[in-house]
Design a protein around this nucleic acid. Sequence first.
DNA 1: CTGTTAGCGCATTCAC
DNA 2: GTGAATGCGCTAACAG
Lengths: 332, 332
Amino acid sequence: MTHVAQRAGVSAMTVSRALRKDGAISAATRQRIMAAVEELGYVLDQTAGTFSSKRSGFVAALVPSLNNSNFADTARGVTDALDGSGLQMLLGYTDYSTAKEEEIVQSMLMRRPEGLILTGGRHTERARRLLTRAGVPVVETWDMPGEPVGHVVGFSNAEATRSLVHHLHERGYRRIGYIGGTSNRDTRGADRRVGFLRAAAELGLDRERIVSFGQPPISMSQGGEAIVQLLSRWPDTDAAVCVSDLSAFGALSECRRRGWAVPGRVALAGFGDFEIASAAVPSLTTVAVDSYGIGHRAGDVLLQAILARRDDRAMPAETVLMPFRIIERETT
Amino acid sequence: MTHVAQRAGVSAMTVSRALRKDGAISAATRQRIMAAVEELGYVLDQTAGTFSSKRSGFVAALVPSLNNSNFADTARGVTDALDGSGLQMLLGYTDYSTAKEEEIVQSMLMRRPEGLILTGGRHTERARRLLTRAGVPVVETWDMPGEPVGHVVGFSNAEATRSLVHHLHERGYRRIGYIGGTSNRDTRGADRRVGFLRAAAELGLDRERIVSFGQPPISMSQGGEAIVQLLSRWPDTDAAVCVSDLSAFGALSECRRRGWAVPGRVALAGFGDFEIASAAVPSLTTVAVDSYGIGHRAGDVLLQAILARRDDRAMPAETVLMPFRIIERETT
DNA sequence: CTGTTAGCGCATTCAC
DNA sequence: GTGAATGCGCTAACAG
């Protein structure tokens, strides 16, 4: 910066000002400085800037997996909401593990984010403690946690699945099964199973008709194996609710290979309204969530909280309930 | 850190040592310090550490899109290769735009990464200049650039698609079409079209039989619209090569809806060996690339280069050609 | 609109 | 194995 300053015939401080948008510099001086910057190939050292200003200029966003269009859309929403704020989003992925989430929370906090966006409402005790003590705003998404860490932008996965089962019941299905992963690692998946069980209890359906298959998130091929297990164990099953569209598509493909008509032999429903749900033949009944909207809204809430904090204003914890809706298609 | 030091009855320097793995501290002292750290909820400020040590402890990885299992696998590979090195990967996505790539390169460089991994070999002039001047190792992936910026771990997309077309020709297909996006925004997609044209020229096939549909990356539904256009414009088409498995699946679904037998009426092939390629019915012929391996190898190469640089050793630019292979399935 | 001074929280270096 | 002095490159705060 001193080099640039010398070349432009100004002080380092003036270079610093020219490199930030907040003005207080004459157009002519800025132009001269920018020319010097380009000539020297100077790139501002944000590390030093952060250190000095105590503003890191970024927020951390943690998602379970990169390869999931729902979370990719949420990340896009966050990025868009932050656009123009001078804040950048740094992404981390937890592989659906709260232990890994804890690690990433810690390593993110070492870089002093101005806020964090998390997926889900379940965290390790230590992660909760770190987050609380960090003193920066936190938004939990894709869930409705009982005891939120801070702000929330999400919905109840249990409630959404419960609605889906009720919907199938209204359509006349009575022997409904559930396909999901073997552990509670995917906490949203576990919540969906809870919703299935709740609806089954309310409607007097069989609550045993559950196939758990593979470590979450379960793949298309695991969905295929699961539907075979479900129908061989309970051959009178007339509908299967799957933890995600991907497993539902796997089940659908396996049915096709075996000549089982969908929805004639068995109806299928997924979760998430991935592109494949509408592209599949027959198209998949599913639960649509506004993934992008969750991210955008979470970004908004976080930004407001960060701005409030900069002004030493307190911002009350906000909980935004996002809508979901059942999309009936050809598999039911 | 001073607080922690006081509580543990040592100097700040000793706390700094305790928080890094490099030893030179007694077990008893470290234990006392760790206790104080936990009690106070202290989290090391890596910004200050980076600033002082001139090591940011991270590498930047830029991918075109998050929602793509190929690039997600590559990112996983990079993360795994870096595991244990003390380097963290920070991810950015470019939306398949070199202009956005330039922006992200700049904002990453402001945080002083110790290395960068890029997807593709085409960049804006300014991005190239920034990268060259940054003085840190760079690895380009998923491509075989003519003039690499630094190291390369990839393959030729043109060559892979050319092989696929030759493969179809050997299987007896003679009126082969190509489905891709409308612009060169997805540079790997553009290279695949080049490979198609090259093979068509070599084999004496019709070189006009191309449908470009939508902004890359093209969606499943755009793949569906494209196959309809292709077959209505050139009804004698006996095979279609698609820029990706996703568009190929969209084409496949549309054929099914219209009662066009695949591969009877038209054969289809994709690119990438996504999970959907094997899950689809009929399963998709495609080109498999070792996405995870590209990431892992790129991470390895970058790590070696970073370690060499730390020791002031020069490391010659390395080019690693990764294999691809045609996977013949039921759509051809 | 521009310059000067001071200091952000660590790690490096050297002393002991 | 531990401590003290020093400085990393920038920006806040204030002066002019």
